[in-house]
Design a protein around this nucleic acid. Structure first.
Lengths: 243, 243
DNA sequence: GCTAATCGTGACCTCAAGTCAGGCCATACA
DNA sequence: TGTATGGCCTGACTTGAGGTCACGATTAGC
């Protein structure tokens, strides 16, 4: 897969700063923009690099010069799409004050709304997660780990600091669990519209969505949340949590 | 994608049972066998239909006659691989007697052993889950739902009947949760060897595997298991539960 | 053995990714 | 302003994989 790793040239031998080359950057951006559209509409395999070039009125070779390969182009498209998403903690202050699980509920509940507003980046992310190939998928995972674009790590720290998450679990594991579960849950909600039949029985999911979100959150809370103080000495909630 | 939907011909108009055609079935099986090998070794995209034909000493066109397309061939390969896996409840009787979570622990613990014994079907399943494209993935999901090849549904029923699983959750949701979580957890264990870098930080996972399995099970038990009866009677029900 | 169907073949087609030699053009400096 | 330099853009070209098809070989049923 040529081009995916690094498509920057070797450093200049003497002075001569390349000087940002505004033309080139602008063009890359235009290409990524158009490619996003095409990938989102046709999927990875059925998107044609030639079509993207035609749509932009440029030569196909030009795209390869900038991105090296179709994979390389898609990788840029994917990164841009994923970076456009909000991070977990980017919520209204009052939601954040309510705590970890309130934040989670906020996002699950607004998923549908967000996707209606702009479905394209979601589709791209779906393609990156399931619709290309293992080599690209590995690259994507490296990216997700190194950039943490959803801010899951700091979100989990937030939950830990507030004493809402168990401290006897690996932080790595909690991050993974959140990423996995939320991703799949959102996929299931979303693909009901974008890709009917992609995940398990989303048919009824649409109706029971509210209930599902509640169930899902309650489950997650039991799984990784601090156990409720109750049962022994009723009252006084959080003051005596260990650590 | 011709061929993936149905590569059986229209039903015969009058009598004339096709009569199983032993030659044809045998050949299909040989092709699937060889294709499995190639897909597992090279991944979906880098596997060449021509190579498979050459390896079998037959014409490429013959493969297309039998399976319609590369996708169609892979789909058969995938189904066979997945069907070769054991179902959840296919465990030694004494494990089964211990109950739902014991069965789960049994499988998680033997994952590594199983994959060493025969890594090929696992690789194929990984390719089907992440490494082809969305159209095929949809087909695969339909298959998984209709066949339930791991027997997750009856496994969950088993847990419910034994009173080990909460009865206030949707059965559909529990099935999905189990499928998702176990799949990802196994992937993380497995790809540490098959595809380093495919999932989050599996580096340390290898060492802490035992501990992770414990953590993971405990988490799942809190999430979907019936709450422990204790807690009313004075002291700590959970801290010495560590299993 | 004869006939009708299926099976198998390999040359052929299509089409999309990817390449590259050459012309274009913007900038840097005289 | 003239000219040299180097990156940018082009589009015709190559490569190679999936997929097709007419025809000959093989088999099953009588």
């Amino acid at each position: 897969m040529p081009g995916i790793a690094s498509n920057r040239v070797a450093p200049p031998l003497y002075q001569r700063q390349p000087r940002v080359r505004p033309r080139s950057e602008a063009k890359r951006a235009r290409i990524v923009e158009a490619a996003t559209q095409h990938f989102a509409e046709h999927g990875y395999h059925d998107a044609r690099v030639g079509d993207i070039a035609t749509a932009l009125g440029i030569a196909k070779g030009s795209i390869f010069q900038h991105f090296g390969s179709k994979d390389g182009l898609f990788f840029e498209v994917y990164k841009r799409a994923v970076r456009s998403f909000s991070k977990y903690l980017d919520v209204p202050a009052e939601v954040r004050q309510e705590g970890f699980f309130a934040v989670l509920r906020y996002w699950l509940a607004s998923t549908e709304h967000l996707v209606h507003e702009d479905w394209i980046p979601y589709r791209i992310s779906l393609l990156g997660n399931y619709g290309t190939d293992l080599v690209l998928k590995r690259e994507i995972n490296r990216f997700l780990i190194s950039e943490d674009p959803y801010g899951t790590v700091s979100f989990v720290r937030f939950g830990l600091e507030r004493g809402e998450l168990r401290d006897d679990l690996d932080i790595e594991m909690m991050v993974s669990i959140i990423d996995w579960m939320v991703e799949r849950f959102q996929d299931a909600l979303l693909t009901a519209e974008l890709d009917p039949g992609l995940f398990r029985r989303q048919g009824e999911l649409a109706e029971k969505k509210e209930a599902r979100i509640q169930q899902f959150l309650a489950m997650l809370q039991r799984a990784i949340g601090v156990p409720p103080p109750a049962a022994v000495s009723r009252q006084k909630s959080r003051s005596n949590h260990r650590r």
